[in-house]
Design a protein around this nucleic acid. Structure first.
Lengths: 224, 224
DNA sequence: CTCCAACAATTGCAGCAGCATTACCGCTCA
DNA sequence: TGAGCGGTAATGCTGCTGCAATTGTTGGAG
């Protein structure tokens, strides 16, 4: 899961980034609306976390801008302005949810999940493949109903592949699912993760395999 | 707009009904989960407003019941139980939003609107031809619903042809689809790819064939 | 009908881009 | 401080892909 955080208080942003990354979320952080706009254009995020009071303007103005460009990524507004009137303003301004500061990280994540659950995939909330069940919203994997722990990066790779089970996932999409802009990558780290993931899946005969499509990307296949 | 209100406190329900009806909203009111279930089956609501503590059970249990039956109507939970932990429980229980009592009617309506605004699923465009399904965005080809991998260049040729299925694709257009400017080509590499692609398609009787239009280009045809 | 020129198809081959694997090591966290 | 995560880089390998040579096909001119 990859989120765009638009927030000018660096302390809060850092704390949030750390907390969420521990849970396996990839965060890009923008301080200015202008930067956020650019990032949102370049990358497809699962959701956008938006502060209202920002150095270059009111965060809410950002939402119609995005929508005009056909970017429908859900937006959750995070703000200290938290009386009912403000909340209504936010929601009618196009926000998908509105969360007053201070908040618990867990509640934030629950709201992100709620927002992501909405489109289409009510049924597809969990992906079954081989002996595994993969829950992209909660970032968990179980194997025969018992938890199956994976290192964070391998988990992200697996989820990205599982979301398009049986379909090719282009290499760049995979990279975007695993790394944010600050951690641009130079070596074959992604390949290494794939390799390790494969080994792990084979070791416990998970009933799935990762195939390579040379020059394009990878795909996850259910064996048998 | 038509909403289903599931709430056992009659005073609150009446007040809410009156207030919302003034705004042109149609409200059906159920006191029991069982009644609510029946109503939800009969009518398509825009959203469901759900209390948690109800005479015949915990409101949250209602959500999975609905989802199992393929009813995807958004649910907003209204409740006095309103500490963060409860909210997380509610949201992860499948609620689309969670609003603590007391609340302003205006905020409720704003949240309803926000929930309704959420985008419908993105339809991915796919081209069917012969036994194959071609997804130009994901660079994926499936054959009878199982993945069918192709070398990159052949894949690009196939996609370019599939996009104009049954129509001639001029040679130069094909070249442009397969090669960028840096990799200008001198030999008959494109012909080679066509040839190899043909062989591959024939080998697995894909139900499509690539025809040549002498001096112009190629076209993809569905056999039969 | 025949022949020819232009265009197209096929295929072996060599080079190399892209992939897989693994060892290594710094880092973090318990 | 020990275990495991994760980035890097070296290594070997596979098979894609561009090339070119050869063969096949088409259609028009004579």
């Amino acid at each position: 899961m990859r989120l765009l955080l638009v927030e000018d208080e660096n302390e809060l942003a850092d704390a949030l980034t750390t907390a969420l990354e521990k849970q396996g979320v990839v965060i890009d952080h923008a301080i200015l609306l202008a930067d956020a706009h650019e990032l949102a254009r370049q990358t497809t995020y699962d959701a956008i976390l938006l502060d209202r009071r920002l150095p270059d303007g009111e965060g809410l103005t950002f939402i119609p801008q995005l929508r005009r460009e056909g970017i429908v990524t859900p937006v959750i507004v995070l703000t200290a302005r938290n009386d009912p009137k403000e909340r209504i303003e936010g929601l009618d301004g196009g926000a998908d949810d509105y969360l007053g500061k201070p908040f618990l990280v867990d509640e934030l994540m629950a709201r992100v999940r709620a927002v992501l659950r909405r489109p289409a995939s009510v049924v597809e909330q969990q992906i079954k493949v081989g002996r595994m069940t993969i829950d992209p919203l909660n970032l968990t994997v179980t194997m025969d109903n018992s938890p199956f722990d994976l290192p964070r990066r391998e988990l992200l790779v697996l989820i990205a592949l599982a979301k398009r089970q049986g379909k090719t996932v282009v290499r760049s999409v995979l990279e975007a699912a695993v790394y944010n802009y600050e951690e641009e990558i130079q070596s074959n780290a992604l390949d290494a993760h794939i390799s390790r993931l494969r080994k792990r899946l084979a070791d416990c005969s998970a009933g799935v395999s990762v195939h390579n499509i040379r020059g394009v990307g990878y795909l996850l296949k259910d064996d048998g």
